[in-house]
Amino acid sequence: MNLFRLAGDLSHLLAIIILLIKIWKTRSCAGLSGKSQILFALVYITRYLDLVTTYISLYNSFMKVIFISTSLATIYLMYSKFRATYDKNHDSFRIEFLIIPCVILSLVINSNFTVLEVLWTFSIYLESVAILPQLFLVSKTGEAESITSHYLFALGSYRALYILNWIYRYYAEGHYELIAIFAGCVQTILYCDFFYLYVTKVLKGKKLQLPA
């Protein structure tokens, strides 16, 4: 565990907390993509199956349980409790266009052809693109509430911080995981346009609005 890694994990946790607080306080999930949330739940469930097979540390198990349970809670809030506020018509990204290529890619490019390893690889690939329905929703409506922007910024920062962690671990421990590094870079690149808008607009107190 190094500082980049810890900061990345905390940023990830913060993103989830911001999201839940936003939904709970405003009693609304307007502007949020339920499809991205379904993809994230799928990511955590397929990645953290080793929770029942391998014990790594209390921290590791605790975070895995938190990520799985909060993503399921978010889905419950969006599709059940606050269903009436869910922006269904704008959330029209076809997630099978992401899931199917990730399934194929994980079957072809993986480091071990075992059930757990292929599912882990699938989750890494899927996570890198899971935010696309949310970004698509923002681009469709042309704007995002500040709180949604903070959520996206924290969520995007997490993988960017992981890249620093991977660089550090490569030099400090000789540890590297090519699949995770490659997908993590793709994931971070997808946020770049958003990061730019966040810094130039949201941090200056303006609403995130896309140029027409």
Binding site: R5, D9, H12, D50, T54, I56, S57, N60, M63, K64, F67, N112, E117, W120, Y162, N165, H175, E177, A180
Partner: peptide, 10 residues
């Protein structure tokens, strides 16, 4: 991954 192929990252 450690020597048993376990992943310590999240």
């Amino acid at each position: 991954k450690d020597e048993f192929g376990n992943k310590d990252e999240l």
